[in-house]
Design a protein around this nucleic acid. Sequence first.
RNA 1: GGGCGUUUAGCUCAGUUGGUUAGAGCGCUUCGUUUACAUCGAAGAUGUCGGGGGUUCGAAUCCCUCAACGCCCACCA
Length: 908
Amino acid sequence: MPKTEIPKAYEAKNHEDSIYAAWEASGFFNPDNLSGEPFSLMMPPPNVTGVLHLGHALENTIMDSMIRFQRMRGRKALLVPGTDHAAVPTQARVEKMLMEQGIKHPRQELGREKLVERIREFADASRATILSQVKKMGTSCDWSRLAYTFDEDRNRAVNELFTRMYNDGLIYRGYRVVNWSVKGQCTCSDDELEYVDRKAQLYTFKYSEDFPFTIASTRPETKLGDTAVAVHPNDERYMSYIGKTFEVEFCGTPLHLRVIADEGVDPQFGTGALGVTPAHSGIDFAMYEKQKADGNDFGIIPVIGSDGKMTAQAGKAFEGLTCEEAREKVVARLREQGLLVSEEEIEQNVATSDRFGDVIESIPMTQWWLDVQKPIPGRGKSLRDLMREALTTGLHGDEKQKITINPERFTKLYLDRVEHLRDWCLSRQIWWGHRIPVWYRLDSPPARGGVRGGGREAATEMFVGSEPPPEEGWTQDEDTLDTWFSSGSWTFSTLGWPASAKATAGKPDKTEDLKTFHPTSWMQMGYEILYLWLMRMVLMSAYALDEIPFHEVYIHGILRDKNGQKFSKSLGNGIDPLEIIEKYSADALRFSVITGVTPGNDSRFYEEKVEAAQRLVNKLWNISRYILTSVEEPVHGRAFKELEPKTLADRWILSRLVRLEEDVAAHLQAAEFSQASEKLREFTWSDFADWYLEISKAQRQGDTKASTDAILVYVLEHLLTYWHPIMPFVTEAIWSHFDDHELLMAHNWPVLRMVDLDLEAETEMTRLQEAISAIRNIRSEHTVAPKQKIIAVIVGAHLETHKGTIESLAGVESLSFVSAPPTGEYASAVISDGQVFVSLEGLVDKDAERAKLAKEQKETEGYIASLEAKLGNKEFTAKAPEHVVATMRQNLEDARKKLERYVHDSKS
RNA sequence: GGGCGUUUAGCUCAGUUGGUUAGAGCGCUUCGUUUACAUCGAAGAUGUCGGGGGUUCGAAUCCCUCAACGCCCACCA
């Protein structure tokens, strides 16, 4: 029966799209069509700022390998796809585009509605691109549950969370110092800052002639807003001043400076006195709040406005100047007045906005905040407590509600961060995002900046909820929510939470999906979003559901280029995963990003890796091609018991397969993708292709044909199955050549039984391989032409039954087994259990031969000596475990036997 | 100033609780058109496992220390 034609090379592009379509059409991406124990996984939603990059390729490979494995293992597997509206970066990106198109001030020129519309157009296009690229990667997600952080369902979840948190008193509107990006005209959370080292001038000076303290600052212009001077309570130099207020004129601006005591001041540092600028330093603001709580309100003077320029409160001489201009002016004045004591250059760590890139100004403003330390009503624990518990004892001490992080070291980083967590600034002054579900009825709009409003609320009435009260006159808060507020609910907002908009706290409102799939089973993310995302998901999930978001987190590193540099637009070293897929295959890309990679560590990516992976893909293809086109009827689905292993090789390859299944399953279950893929590669290329297939060619000549064919097919179908989670396309493509139409993706992972391991066969096969390699080695070293048949003799080794195999694989014309070494012109080699002699008339260089053997003999002697030393050590034999000692004894015995043969040999 | 990571073959990296003479891919050398595959096959070379010290019968693996590189965090004004 003629077999289907199978092309010589695997052309991925002829298969991938149609295979993906078939998978999708099968319905098995949707767990509703699967049974078994649920296994759920949420795709970390890619930002809609652009297109898929290599980092996404890595993530897709990791999560898809996991979900496919679980699905094949019979789990009700759910992978929810989605995208993130990524508020700030997306708006920033579109604004930049618009500016390049000539719209200089997009916000002012277009207005809110039009600008949002433009961003939406961009985001929609980008989202469509990204989702199609996810398919290109082969990611097996349930498209019927597709989510977007900025769609209606997620908006409902966001509003619900905000409202509940507000009603619980956790969310509050407060006038506090925020991280302000002048360039972006927007606040940033602490986690969105990037610290940059730079040089700065540190000025040491007095506020005025008669002021008793000398202070230091790198930002002397902010000192126009000083309202206090802090010293350590035990600092004898200043003790007597504590509590007093000084009236000074600083560069023409009058200041009232209260001297306060604060433990945080280091008396050893600088002058031991610290100018306190509550308006423009988070630390100073904290100091101010502490004092204020003790009834010591010394006031806040904002001297820098949201436009980055000096305010009227800075004094007439400075109003309207940029900070830099004001600084120069202040320093000049101080110098003139002889108040500048010293000036030095120091290294400074400044906060910059990770999105806008400019240096962050600390400015007081009225914003929305989430209190992470306040006890949640009815629970007696704060959000911080819950975030801590989730990683230590499990929520409420429940081990089942505990998250484990792989690798474990990130747990410590997480916990450290939790302890240092401050209130989270939720409101953003951009338009692309979930609008804050708060409504005001007021006479005049609420002032946002601290400059004009000074924190005083103009609103007369406020209402929190997704819809305004029915009456007239309510307007919604202008600000939007930090994008991570919505991302934080990703594990459950994607599963239908809240069940209804009317759901209230305390009442269980779990939808079917939530009951089935939450907490999710597994999560993977890059370490760079550990704080930004992981912590928020824990927070939101613990708050909303009193559940952890997932049981296990796998942290991966980032992909770097060949030189170890980050991929970035500015470096121009970007690699488009789609081009790689186009040029090689999705499978090769998947294999190459997952292999040689350990959790939490960065890895390098370059095309040579993909080339190597593609060779492997092709190898698998050709192995299959050979089997499928040469076997009479590739009947698959046979049971192990139905096979008839007739030869050593048969028994051996089946035993190896059993071992492979065990190893791969264990590795994938433990998310050790690299180890799994390496085991598979080794089996595929070495065991199966190089050895078994070659041996099978001879076996298929005689009466072992049928049994060999059956084994070939059996091993192939299993191998494809085990490869499938990592290389889904090529395996599915090959699978389709079997005569039924079941999809491999929906095929059950065949679990093999360890009792079917055949250790005897494995040992014997190793010897056989050794003998064959030894003969090949001799041929190679004496440059015997491959076609030239040779005559070989084997002494010892007990390989008589494998005569044919040795002859065919080593190219031996006549092989004989004797009990004593032959004489004559032979090249020889010693193997574990015997000796190999190859007759090479006229080709043997006796001296070289002797030298080689002498060298090997010496090595063996050295080995024996080391073993003898170890075994001679009583402590070793007494303390080392039995099996170690036994192995070593056996090795010694073998080595001694081997040595004898060398001795014998050199005599002959 | 703290903390973490990395350092293994020419290159990129594995190495699971300490246990034979440390591995893979790529590259390199030699040979090869055997009808699955030249995207291939056979054979081969290459390592004081960053340095030093310690624990142990035994260390790439555990401890200490130093060094280089990288990352994260931090309120030294």
